[in-house]
Design a protein around this nucleic acid. Sequence first.
DNA 1: AAATTGAGTTCCATTAAATGGAACTTCACG
DNA 2: CGTGAAGTTCCATTTAATGGAACTCAATTT
Lengths: 284, 284
Amino acid sequence: MPQVAERQKPKRATTERRTHRLIGSKTPMATGTLGKALAVLDIIAQAPVPLRFTDVLRQSDQPRGTLHRQISHLVEEGLVTVNADHSYTPGIRLLKLAARAWSQNSIRSIAEPHIRALHEHTGETVHLGILNDLEVIYVDKIESRQSVRMHSQVGNASPLYCTGIGKAMLAVLPPQEASARAQRFSYRQHTPTTLASPALLLAELEIIRSTGISHDREEHEPGIRCVAASICSATEEQVAGISVTAPAYRTSKETIAEWEQLVPATAKAIEADLNDQIGPRAGQ
Amino acid sequence: MPQVAERQKPKRATTERRTHRLIGSKTPMATGTLGKALAVLDIIAQAPVPLRFTDVLRQSDQPRGTLHRQISHLVEEGLVTVNADHSYTPGIRLLKLAARAWSQNSIRSIAEPHIRALHEHTGETVHLGILNDLEVIYVDKIESRQSVRMHSQVGNASPLYCTGIGKAMLAVLPPQEASARAQRFSYRQHTPTTLASPALLLAELEIIRSTGISHDREEHEPGIRCVAASICSATEEQVAGISVTAPAYRTSKETIAEWEQLVPATAKAIEADLNDQIGPRAGQ
DNA sequence: AAATTGAGTTCCATTAAATGGAACTTCACG
DNA sequence: CGTGAAGTTCCATTTAATGGAACTCAATTT
């Protein structure tokens, strides 16, 4: 059949078209080969102890043969390391990739001098976090004393509803989006003061919206308080937040009052730098 | 055709069989879907500035349509973030994955108290690195003063031939393996003292093998010296190394002599802990 | 304003890879 | 030893990736 030029038929008759979802989709299931591989990697990475093949098999819903091949691909690529006893741990190639992700992150590099200054003024631990669906991922931290546990925090994720930065970021989202996410949390009463329901959380967000300041009143860890504020670029493509954290006994009324000035001021300064950077030379 | 049980034909006639390569293969080309995706991710991650679609296209050898789909999969999975100007940066999901890889790494967690003690004794910066093909990937660092640049180092990679830890690790590999790798480096004369040829390097390795101590005599960065030693588990599945680093003006003959005792002793202590951990309860 | 260029995106027949059920191998334990 | 559980390999079938070309959109040029 030598008829060639027969491509331009519109074919738009079928109403249902696979629409692209760039935001908000709730990951119904791992999509595509890459998604499935990462689902397996997630299982291996988030386990507290190294898993063996059968352990992974139980948690994934893949057939044995399929899973075996998927894992061996992950091992080939260095994303997973296999130990002597056939257990699996995340591979160091992830560290190398993340080092780039960290150093290149524009919010982080722009915020760095500001959070350092904030640390100088307060003497307490300062965090920078980025919004990631229902979590805040901490991308930087400046700690007072020891550098102990420095890394244990960077890269870690916490739920939005019980952290100062998390609530601050939720509060700057469009209200409908914020309440949609509020419904999706798996609430846990970490402490007596945790806001462990959508209603409590949404009421708190109202207050945060009006003041521009978010408080963590020992809602995540007993004895730990913080003052936070959100950062969002003009285009709203990325939302972040900063906080000053301290043990409760060190947070007098006067100290908190001072932080309530410093933290939002720092957040606004970072926002300004961020927009300066994006505006003039977007293509650079 | 209802004949069913017809599976056990040996079919071993074909001599060429796809042999598994678990070690040593020189990554001739990205294999499989996952490998291709990671090749693209590598391009995006290792660029000093965010790349646009066409920039990535130039560096990868994929057709436009293919590359476009590959990148959108990476974006869907959160491994890559797309900026307002259509440029790409590595995504924060990598940070989250790496945090697990870091905290779970057994060598790192076992070595931590030891390198901390080493830092206490010397007062200088201490590194822990892991062997990764032709590179050392730094997985931990304890620094004297500022926590500045703390993270810029963890996850970073350096060539084996011009670093103290790198040479120490090369020296404990089987000699044939060490010389094979020595041929594969792209040597660069970072400083006047860099050992920038296989011959020079292999001679140095002989010395390191006999003493168990590796020196970096300003071979990577001018004015920076270090003393290093290797760590390898009994099963030799993983090879690592530690080092004490300082500016040259602070490294007197006596200081170096002291480190030449401390560093190998610490390395041996870590080795012992490592084997204790692996031996008794391998399946845990 | 119309034409041109270049970047980014979508489409779909072809092709390559992933799938998964079952057979096979290896090891630990009673 | 045998017995079972864990790990590995195989291959016909199914599914997803491929890549060339057409298409869209915006910025420049004529």
